[in-house]
Design a protein around this nucleic acid. Sequence first.
DNA 1: CTGGAGGATCTTTTT
DNA 2: GATCCTCCAG
Length: 781
Amino acid sequence: MTSRPIDLGDFEEAPPPQKPGGLSARALAGAEAPYLKGLNPEQRAAVETTDGPLLVLAGAGTGKTRVLTTRLAHILNTGKAWPGQILCVTFTNKAAREMRERIGHLIGGVVEGMTWLGTFHAIGVKILRSHAELAGLKSGFSILDTDDQIRLLKQIIEAAGIDEKRWPARQLAGLIDNWKNRGLLPARVPAGEAHAYGNGRGAELYAEYQARLRVVNAVDFGDLLLEVLHIFQDHPDVLKEYQRRFKYMLVDEYQDTNVAQYLWLRLLAQGHKNICCVGDDDQSIYGWRGAEVDNILRFEKDFPGAKVIRLERNYRSTPQILGAASGLIAKNESRLGKTLRSERDDGDMITLRSHWDGDEEARAVGEDIEQLQRKGEKLNDMAILVRASFQMRAFEDRFITLGVPYRVVGGPRFYERQEVRDALAYLKITASPDNDLAFERIINVPKRGIGDTSVKRMHEHARKNGYSLYRAAEVVSQTDELPAKARTALRTLLESFGRWRQALQGLPHTELAEIILDESGYTTMWQNDKSPEAQGRLENLKELVRSMGEFETMEGFLEHIALVMDTESNASEDKVNIMTLHSAKGLEFGTVFLPGWEEGLFPHQRSLDENGRAGLEEERRLAYVGITRAKRRATISFAQNRRVHNLWQSSLPSRFIDELPEAHVEVAPMANSYGGYGIGSYGTSRFEERTTPFSNTYDTPGWQRAQRAYAKGEAMRSSPNIIEGQLVARETEGKNIARGARVFHQKFGYGRVSHVDGNKLTIDFDKAGEKRVLDSFVELA
DNA sequence: CTGGAGGATCTTTTT
DNA sequence: GATCCTCCAG
């Protein structure tokens, strides 16, 4: 196999000449470069230790980004490398963007030359594009998003004769993702794991999926890492060139790297060995995505001679907040251990509040926010950080009623909306017709009478002849295999695409996009749609075309959105932020609300079920991330009842609440609207005992329950067993409540079971009518 | 082939 | 509660 030579451009071996009279000269002369001012000694050491492997353990709020950007500026200014010789990887686009901006502030336009600053995935694409043929791809390959991936997998599963009901495509997607994150090709998947899907056909389907991806000349997110890794492993000449190129490497959020990323970093770092990783083991919250905290824990072993610098001065939070967070995270066992010291004045203790239900929780937060606003605080400086996105709704509803402006960060994404994806499919096919998934998506949208049977026929053609669906459509449209109506429709569509493709050269791409959406009838389809959301969809289409304008070409635009699934939200308006704990990482707010600290929700049940103690520790880190976002104020709350799906569940306060050091927490006496259910009205809940000192040991009900569950070797599958504040003895043995059984429920009284669905029962209550409840809430009458 | 009705399933987090 | 899917009647 041959590999295209890497374009080395200006980046030859010789070090760049000194810039005359620039900062570099001054720095070399021993004068203080202005950007070094104001760094504390540790930060400064992290900036100036440029050569050799370096791990910077940067606790929350210790100025991590500042160190990273200053370090980059320093390397550039002292003439140690050209911008194009520095590899700088981040995890999120947001981080990459911010980094670029801040470096720009420090050193100006030189940042433009930093072509290798970006997310792992963005850099992966770049490398893969120049060596596509080594991975069996053509350079113009397309990048599938999760949605496409699932649809492709569904086809494969169906073709393999596997019941998709029993073996959901999602599950297979998860497994494949997991394998890719660990750098495993189909042949290397451990036999045991391959067995986890479709009666042992997991690896086979994975192989088939990879083959299909090659046929349609596409990759998924995982491939962007996996394929690059394998190119490096199998082609030493290519690896060598990149090793030579990257004189300095910087990695942000190192604790979030997965095995594949770690392996490729390690390969590259064997060149100049100047790798600097910045991270915080206490903020590793992406284990579910394959991140290995272990990578950071064993950095010193992996990179011999590595220096480690700890940043422990926190400039963000008050001692109270930091104290609470530190106390909590200290419960984790697998960590390197840091002691954060606050550089700020003492503030208020963390407030802890109990609520009757989620709505009341939202009401209370709303009141707090209005009060703070009256005191002159900015909404922008407040955030509500939730564990799971379904929690957001209660707050949104409340804010709408109150008229409090809010923004949902990382909510339903623009590029994932149906109409946007449809529109993009049209554009993608115009740019590259062989994108089968895109073609299939819109071949009958808007409806043109080309139904499933017709599409199936084209598929057969495509598969038999080994060409794309689009090509098959061209062939079939010239035969009489399809009903006349479908054939004409198909011909018209193909002709349109031909015409649009022609126009790709001549017309400005935004104009072309409008023409495509018009002529295809797509816009008209929504104009004729009377549903309430149609208007919004049309606006989204407009917004899509508008955002295209920021790119030079259609191709550039399409490449961008494949990797950047979010749109920059304008942070300028004054709005309360609502987001998940995950997307809050790296941000800070004056006031932070942390609702929903309940067993089962936070820590999340699935995390415990699937990953046991490691899962619990990751949840705890998530809690730590949440608290440390706050600068001055943090309020933690939990509800005693929460509606999940359509059924009410009572819940226990999170075990994390027990773990907060008593000295930094104050329990809010909450006179709530459902008098009688406030603190103290229910006997057995631990929350009431809160008037006595907190216990800092693992002996609270929540913890004990966990212990019992683990001891039995069984995950805690069912929900906590409290009914209106009363701990109910749990009958763990199967209840075996059958249809027709007469049962008793604490809240709804007597009734008869009309339907059984696993542990969910539909019961016709004598007084309360029909309700759906979990079996653990009823007893046989 | 289309459209509507009814049913099942889901909700952790994301490049 | 919402969305996605399947099934059935036109």
